[in-house]
Design a binder for these strands. Structure first.
Lengths: 222, 222
DNA sequence: TCATAAATATGAATGTAATTCATTTTTATT
DNA sequence: AATAAAAATGAATTACATTCATATTTATGA
């Protein structure tokens, strides 16, 4: 009864490859079966249906994501730096796992059935880590506490998902990580220019450093 | 030759209703045909296939979106206020057009074929308006100019899309507009608390007003 | 080791939905 | 009113996902 496990693994691996390159709709069971060296019927011994197979995929990878994240956060002291790490790691992971990225970010993330899948609970864990860090930051006063922490998280996850999704749609052109520093700056400090508009809201900041020379437009147009 | 136009319109309207409640995959042509009082074959006289019909949908509504936006931006003077209006209007429009929202935000936005559809070009127009406003703000120095404007736009569109998508996935619970003020604050001023962390980045701001009492967690958990 | 039962795997058969196409109906033109 | 062109129709075809009766493989115990 070892065989079953092997077969299942073959199916899942084939599914990752096929779904990774074809969108849920265009991928078909027959192709997955062929690529897994298995009869079509066999897939239905292991999974209820196409959707069930699809939603099974992210489980391992998402675990991997969380473990790697844990490790990368080790030793970082303050919240702003933890947030910078979240941004970097998120982009880094999707950059290095584009098949997983396509599956999760394009087809899966927008499906209501995903809310019921196990892989979703893992992503919730990530979301809840982010939330905890934000709350911690509010307690230690490095993060502003006059805003609902859920909204702060929405800001953070929003930019990231949007960035990755666009990168995928555009065919993975350009380096997903290229702009992570700027993203962190924006999330932490906002888009307003304090020098001039300080008057408007009664605050003053020192001039920020000059814009870095890199300005590649590849990635983030449109 | 007026009849054709009418039929086409019936088909599109039926399609909006059906796709608006059923996801691309679950909606079927036969249902759309029945709801449009038309034979199935007729649909194929007007549209190449199911996908073609689907991607035709957003055109009118997106026009409506852009026109309304134009009107709402009239008379607003400075960039930060224009941005606040973008946020408000975006959320307002999707709140009042949930069928369109589901179609565009869930099924359509994540499909590569969307990039080739006409409706996409309209959304590009919106994106390009946002970009123009940001650049204008950088010129007039109300928006920081040490960051690539494309990245700034990504921040803005990211939160908004993410917020709407989550609201839809969660079944449209809660008021999509409830948090728009906080979102604007965050985008403009960032999440860092200047009072304490000012030291860290060499800047000082006055204390921000206390957090507003509303803290409904419905919408933005997870 | 062999016989037998239980678990897995198979692929032809079935069901469902999209798409095509030969035909009919409607509309425009004379 | 006759004829041609455009639209509409729905039965037939095709492409899949899914089921199911059968065959094959694996585990059990005499």
């Amino acid at each position: 009864m070892m065989k079953k496990v092997v077969t299942r693994q073959q199916i899942v691996e084939a599914a990752i490859r096929v779904f990774g390159r074809k969108s849920y709709r265009d991928a078909n069971i027959s192709e997955i079966a062929k690529e897994a060296n298995v009869a079509e019927g066999t897939i239905y011994q292991h999974f209820m249906n196409k959707e069930d197979l699809f939603f099974f995929i992210p489980q391992e990878k998402t675990h991997e994501f969380l473990e790697g994240l844990d490790l990368h956060l080790q030793g970082i002291q303050d919240t702003p730096n933890k947030i910078a790490k979240f941004v970097w790691y998120y982009l880094y992971f999707f950059k290095t796992n584009p098949e997983y990225a396509r599956i999760v970010m394009l087809d899966m993330r927008v499906s209501k059935s995903f809310l019921k899948a196990k892989g979703y609970n893992l992503l919730r864990r990530f979301a809840s880590m982010v939330l905890d860090v934000i709350k911690e930051g509010q307690r230690e006063k490095t993060i502003r506490d006059d805003i609902n922490p859920y909204i702060i998280r929405q800001l953070l996850l929003g930019v990231l998902e949007h960035g990755v999704a666009r990168w995928l749609l555009k065919g993975e052109k350009g380096d997903l990580l290229e702009f992570h520093t700027q993203i962190v700056k924006l999330v932490l400090d906002g888009i307003r220019n304090d020098e001039v508009s300080g008057e408007n809201r009664g605050s003053v900041r020192k001039k920020r450093p000059e814009r870095s020379p890199a300005s590649g437009k590849e990635l983030h147009k449109a």
